[in-house]
Design a protein around this nucleic acid. Structure first.
Lengths: 348, 348
DNA sequence: CCGTGCACGGTAAACGATTTCTACGATCGC
DNA sequence: GCGATCGTAGAAATCGTTTACCGTGCACGG
């Protein structure tokens, strides 16, 4: 192994060093530093604190975690760290949980099952107290099996898991009702008079894509509108994908509105349509999903269904706090909401 | 302390358990699991591997890190995890460094000195091998002092630090030439014929804001253009700030172009100006800085100077790799580039 | 036939904390 | 005046690894 200490490394400051300087035992120093309930005389405490200060002592969390079997750390899995969706969510999580002295470590899987597993294993090995699935599951049989056995093992050893997404992993969860949110948008469009509604789906290997597409189909049928496969295209949750999908849909069908399964694709669609000479919303309406921070600043301010990302994170943290404290709280439920801006209007 | 093991926790699988099952010593198991250079007979190795597999053994990284004094972990400090700028950068860093078996832990300071210090201390306590400052320094004397002593201590104990931003911390660094990039945009606008150029600055407590503003002033003087304080406003690097600043500038002066110190503010400015009835770029040009992923999909596709964020991360990772391998590489230098889109034109 | 060297495996001492158990003096109740 | 209690502190075991140091047994060269 190439793991040797660098030769320059000065001695690190341990409990022992502090103990020697303060002329007490390491036990006493530990008690002072970790605010143990074991009593320590005021005068001794002061001596210890002074010595610790003087040496710049920082308790080694690794050693501490090793003996307590608690690392005060939670691992978060996201798909793409540069996606503002996850950014908001992690922020909510963090703002809330840091008050309890926990640290968040976030890892990005890039939607690669292999990579996600690798990070999951790393989190396990670093003994995080909780595992948070902020990212939707991947639709892959091998992945599913591996994640399940890993999570089982993790939980059987006292770890807790929290799910903030569309995921098969069990345990505590904050639910966002994709079905209802999707239906709400379909209803909104239908109420405006749209009958030919195009739909841009996410990548097929993401559970959330499947859920939103199914919800779309059901909502359309519910309203007695035909679910026309010519009006459905895949846009892989990206801007470029949204462009391609939108052009494909207007080429093959004649929608009066296009509903994209996320804002990024809606923005791509908007741009492509605009560049192709369509006026939005006069010629065609475009609706998104998520209400990402920049949705308001899209080429046309985007009408979309808001996913309360930050709140999902915050609610997750609240759940986490309770579970960590040994309680068994109920799941949290959050719903979407239509945000009306300028990209949707009645059909002509 | 509230750190007791949960009562449900099944026994964890340690080296010892594997050793017992395989009927060898823990040393042998360790040698097999950590691919030590110490020879182990093929037959023994197989037995160990089988036992480890059967028990679902995962070496405890905490314990490992404790003895090797290497955690195979790097801590990254960013300002705002939901800012795509940092997302891209971290992605570059991660894509490159993960090949070497390192894990990235990212923490978000929210531009709060207190919080940043707290995370820095946590990273130190978790014994990260490297500290990466992806975020610009904060302009605060106390913060500066604390960070400096912390970094000194960290380095004197063998840690390495890497700077990817405008920061006073020394050590290895990948430089982005803000001055040249800013000047390039000023030149570009001036060449187009703009003489009254407004400027929207970032928050004053960020080092990078100061650098870009100074660079703007110098570049203007260089071109013989007057630096008019009526045409400068603060926009705090946010969309809302950009809106406010833009309106303020057009209220007090008569710029033919506005240059914002980041894209977010440029987008805010664009939207505000558009809503106030200005045509862009016909009535007024707007330029940004960063070329964030959505700059192309702003209300008007944004002309901006591209900061190669992903590459900054990647270059940082290759530096890291070399330093970790014991070398002493030269700093990396990256430059900006004007991206022409539709938000800038000749003045009327 | 014996010393050398190598392959292989075990023992035990770290790493830096926490925590249980024990010890010792002082105070207190009776 | 004596046992009980309390406040305070230290010794030592422990967490799960790595690794320096030994001790075998066997092959091989001289």
């Amino acid at each position: 192994m190439s793991n040797r200490r660098t030769p320059l490394a000065r001695e690190r400051v341990s409990l022992r060093a502090v103990a020697e300087l303060a002329e007490v035992s390491v036990a006493t120093v530990s008690r002072v530093m970790s605010q143990s309930s074991h009593p320590v005389a005021e005068e001794t405490r002061k001596r210890v604190l002074a010595a610790a200060e003087r040496l710049g002592f920082q308790p080694n969390q690794l050693a501490r975690a090793l003996v307590t079997a608690r690392s005060q750390t939670v691992g978060v899995i996201v798909h793409d760290i540069s996606d503002p969706y996850f950014g908001e969510l992690v922020k909510g999580l963090e703002d809330e949980i840091r008050a309890d002295g926990y640290r968040l470590f976030v890892a990005s899987s890039d939607r690669d099952p292999e990579r996600e597993l690798e990070y999951l294993r790393a989190f396990e090995a670093y003994q995080v107290d909780a595992l948070v699935f902020a990212a939707s599951a991947l639709e892959d049989a091998a992945y599913r099996h591996d994640v399940e056995t890993l999570v089982d093992r993790f939980e059987s050893r006292g770890g807790i898991t929290l799910v903030l997404s569309d995921h098969f992993v069990g345990g505590h969860k904050v639910h966002f009702d994709n079905r209802a949110a999707t239906a709400a948008m379909v209803d909104y469009l239908a109420d405006l008079g749209h009958r030919h509604i195009g739909f841009i789906t996410g990548p097929p290997d993401l559970t959330v894509s499947r859920h939103r597409e199914n919800a779309f189909r059901e909502a359309m049928e519910q309203r007695g509108l035909s679910y026309d496969t010519d009006l459905v295209a895949e846009g892989s949750f990206s801007i470029e994908g949204g462009k391609r999908a939108a052009m494909q849909i207007v080429d093959t069908g004649a929608p009066t509105a296009i509903f994209a399964a996320n804002d990024l694709m809606a923005i791509g669609a908007t741009r492509a349509l605009l560049d192709a000479g369509y006026r939005i919303p006069d010629d065609i309406s475009v609706a998104g999903f998520d209400d990402m921070p920049l949705a308001e600043y899209a080429p046309v301010p985007l009408t979309t269904v808001r996913v309360p990302t930050y709140d999902i994170g915050r609610e997750g943290a609240v759940l986490l706090r309770q579970i960590l404290a040994g309680q068994d709280p109920d799941d949290a439920y959050l719903t979407g909401e239509i945000i009306e801006r300028r990209s949707v209007a009645r059909p002509r």
